[in-house]
Design a protein around this nucleic acid. Structure first.
Length: 502
RNA sequence: GGGCGCGUAGCUCAGCUGGUAGAGCAAGGGACUCUUAAUCCCUAGGUCCGGGGUUCGAGCCCCCGCGCGCUCACCA
C-alpha cells in the first residue's frame, strides 16, 4: 500500500539527511534549460559530441527510471521539455552512480556531465555529478494511462498538469489568451484599472451574489457580480477608455459553461456606440486567436469555426423568426406570444414575462446553432436595464451579444446615459423581479448621481474569458481551462485524518 | 434541487446468475551496460465510498447518506 511506498521514500530521505545532504536545498547551482541544450545539440552526431566532450548542467524532475546492473537511464522533465540522463558505473564515481540508483520518480535533481548519444541515437547527459534539489515523497500517477479520474484531475490539478499534456496545453493557452487580450486593449489606448470586488450594492447583471461581512464597519458586502457600474463611474470621471480583467462571482449552479467565479473582461469606450463595440469585439477575438494560436481557423467539438472576416450581425427578432417562424415584435405581450408559440406547436413553458419567454425561445432554438461567430443584436428593453434605447424602436435597446461555438461569450451595448430613463428602468426591472424576487437589486443611488454628473455616449463590452478560452482550446467544459474549478468540499473523513496521524 | 450513470490496490481497470478479490503499471528484494510503456524471477499491498438491510453467505441485490460525471432546472 501507499504507506509502504512512502515509508521507503522517507527512508531514502532520512538516509540523505544522515549523510549530511540537504534534500531541500535553498539554492540551485548553475544550469542550462533543457530546451536550450536541445537547441544547441539536437543536430550533433555521436562522434562530434564525443570529440567535444563538453559538460552541461541541467535540472528537472525525474519522471521515468530504467535501471540496469551497471547502467541507469532516467528521463528529466523541466518546463515541459524532456531529456534523458544516464549513469554508467564505469564512467562515473561510485558515489554518483549509487546516488542515481537510489533516485525515485518524482525527485528533482541537478546533474552535470557530457552529452552522448545512445545506440538508439537518444541525446543523453552522462552524469558525473548529481545533487538532490527536492525529494519527492509520493508516487506520480501511472506513466502510461496518466491520471484520468475526473475528480482527481480537478482536485489535484498539479498531478493532472504533470502527467497530462492536454492539461498543460490548456493552462498555457489560457495564459496566452489573457496576455493577448491585454496587449490588444493596451495598444488601443485602454487603461487597465481595478475596481472593488467587495461591493455594498451589487449590480450590472441579473444574478444572485455571494454575501459577506465586514467586521470593522459591521457592514454587509457582496462579491461583485459585474464590474460595470464602477467602470462607468471611471468614464464619468474622464477616463475615456478603461478595462478590467477580473474575477466576478455569481451564486449559481455549476455546469459545463458555468463556474461560480469566472473571469470577465469589461471595457468601456467613450464616444462609441454598440456598433463600434462590435468592430472592437471582432478585432479583439481575431487578434487573440492570431497571437495565442497563430490562426483564425479552429475546431471546437468536432466543428470547424473560422473567426476571420466580418461576423454576421443579426437582429434578435430575425434570428428567432428564422428558427421558429415567430415574430416577437408582432406579439409583444406575454399572452399573445404564448399563443403564437402554441400555434407553432412550441411549448411556451412557464416564463413569467414576455422578455423571459423571448429569452427562452432564443436559448432553445437559436443559440445552439450559432457555431460560427455571430452578433445577435437589438434586444428587448425588458432584458437590458443598462442599455440605451434603440432610435428606431423604443421596445428595443442597442445591445448585442457575440456567440461562438453555440455559446454566448459576451454582452455589450450602447450604455444608457440618460439619468431619468436609467432611474425608471432600474425601478421597472425591480418591479418585474418582485414576483420571483431573488435577484431584486437595491437601487444604486450613487450610480444615478454619477449619471447626472454626466456619462458621455459610451460603448461597453464584456467578454467571458473562460468561455473564449474554452472555444479556443477546444475544451468540452469550462473546467478544462480553469485551473482550480469549483468543487463540492470533500467529506473530510478518511485520508487526510489518517495521514495526519503519522 | 430532479433524472440517469459511476465509486474495487498509489494509478489504469477486470471481477459471470450472490459463494469469501484479480491483472498491468507504480512499490520492495534479486538479475542485467543501450533502455526510453525496458525485460525476467520473487514479494508485499484492499474499510470493494460510508451506514443499514435481505441472505447460510453481499464487491454484486434493497434502502439511506457522501462524492463524481452526464443531463434537466436555476442561470448568461
Amino acid at each position: 500500500m501507499s504507506r509502504k511506498e512512502r515509508d521507503a521514500r522517507r527512508g531514502r530521505l532520512e538516509a540523505l539527511r544522515a549523510a549530511g545532504v540537504d534534500p531541500y536545498p535553498a539554492r540551485v547551482g548553475p544550469r542550462e534549460s533543457i530546451a536550450s541544450v536541445r537547441g544547441r545539440f539536437s543536430e550533433r552526431d555521436a562522434e562530434s559530441l564525443e570529440k567535444e566532450n563538453e559538460p552541461v548542467a541541467v535540472v528537472g524532475r525525474v519522471v521515468a527510471l530504467r535501471s540496469f546492473g551497471k547502467l541507469v537511464f532516467a528521463t528529466l522533465l523541466e518546463n515541459g521539455e524532456r531529456l534523458q540522463i544516464s549513469a554508467r558505473k564505469a564512467e562515473t564515481t561510485p558515489e554518483c552512480f549509487g546516488f542515481v540508483k537510489k533516485l525515485d520518480v518524482g525527485d528533482f535533481v541537478r546533474v552535470v556531465g557530457p552529452l552522448w548519444r545512445t545506440k538508439s541515437d537518444e541525446l543523453t547527459v552522462d552524469v558525473r555529478e548529481v545533487e538532490m534539489l527536492a525529494k519527492g515523497l509520493r508516487p506520480l500517477p501511472e506513466k502510461w494511462h496518466g491520471l484520468s479520474d475526473v475528480e482527481a484531475r480537478f482536485r489535484q490539478r498539479y498531478l493532472d498538469l504533470l502527467v497530462n499534456e492536454e492539461a498543460r496545453r490548456a493552462a498555457l493557452l489560457r495564459s496566452r489568451i489573457v496576455t493577448a487580450m491585454r496587449a490588444f486593449l493596451d495598444e488601443r489606448g485602454f487603461l487597465e484599472v481595478e475596481t472593488p470586488v467587495l461591493q455594498p450594492i451589487y449590480g450590472g447583471a441579473a444574478a444572485r451574489p455571494f454575501t459577506t461581512h465586514h467586521n470593522a464597519y459591521d457592514q454587509t458586502l457582496y462579491l461583485r457580480i459585474s464590474d460595470e457600474l464602477y467602470l462607468k463611474r471611471l468614464v464619468v470621471g474622464g477616463i475615456d477608455r478603461v478595462y478590467e480583467i477580473g474575477r466576478v462571482f455569481r451564486n449559481e449552479g455549476v455546469s459545463r459553461k458555468h463556474n461560480p467565479e469566472f473571469t470577465m473582461m469589461e471595457c468601456y469606450q467613450a464616444y462609441a456606440d454598440y456598433s463600434d463595440m462590435m468592430d472592437l469585439t471582432q478585432a479583439m477575438v481575431q487578434s487573440i486567436a492570431e497571437r495565442a494560436i497563430g490562426g483564425s481557423r479552429i475546431e471546437f467539438g468536432g466543428q470547424e469555426i473560422d473567426l476571420a472576416g466580418e461576423w454576421p450581425r443579426i437582429p434578435l427578432r430575425d434570428a428567432i423568426a428564422r428558427e421558429t417562424g415567430i415574430d416577437i415584435l408582432e406579439h409583444d405581450a406575454l399572452p399573445t406570444l404564448r399563443a403564437a408559440c402554441e400555434a407553432k406547436g412550441l411549448p411556451p413553458g412557464d416564463a413569467p414575462t414576455w422578455g423571459r419567454l423571448v429569452d427562452d425561445l432564443f436559448s432553445e432554438h437559436v443559440e445552439p446553432k450559432l457555431i460560427q461567430p455571430t452578433f445577435i443584436t437589438d434586444y428587448p428593453v425588458e432584458l437590458s436595464p443598462l442599455a440605451k434605447r434603440s432610435t428606431s424602436d423604443p421596445r428595443l435597446v442597442e445591445r448585442f451579444e457575440p456567440f461562438l461555438g453555440g455559446m454566448e461569450i459576451g454582452n455589450a451595448f450602447s450604455e444608457l446615459n440618460d439619468p431619468d430613463d436609467q432611474r425608471e428602468r432600474l425601478e421597472a426591472s425591480r418591479r418585474d423581479l418582485d414576483a420571483g424576487d431573488e435577484e431584486a437589486h437595491p437601487l444604486d443611488e450613487d450610480y444615478l448621481v454619477a449619471l447626472e454628473v454626466g456619462l458621455p455616449p459610451t460603448g461597453g463590452l464584456g467578454i467571458g474569458v473562460d468561455r473564449l478560452a474554452m472555444v479556443l482550446a477546444d475544451a468540452p467544459t469550462l473546467r478544462e481551462v480553469v485551473a482550480f474549478p469549483h468543487m463540492r468540499p470533500r467529506a473530510s473523513s478518511g485520508e487526510d485524518a489518517e495521514e495526519e496521524e503519522d
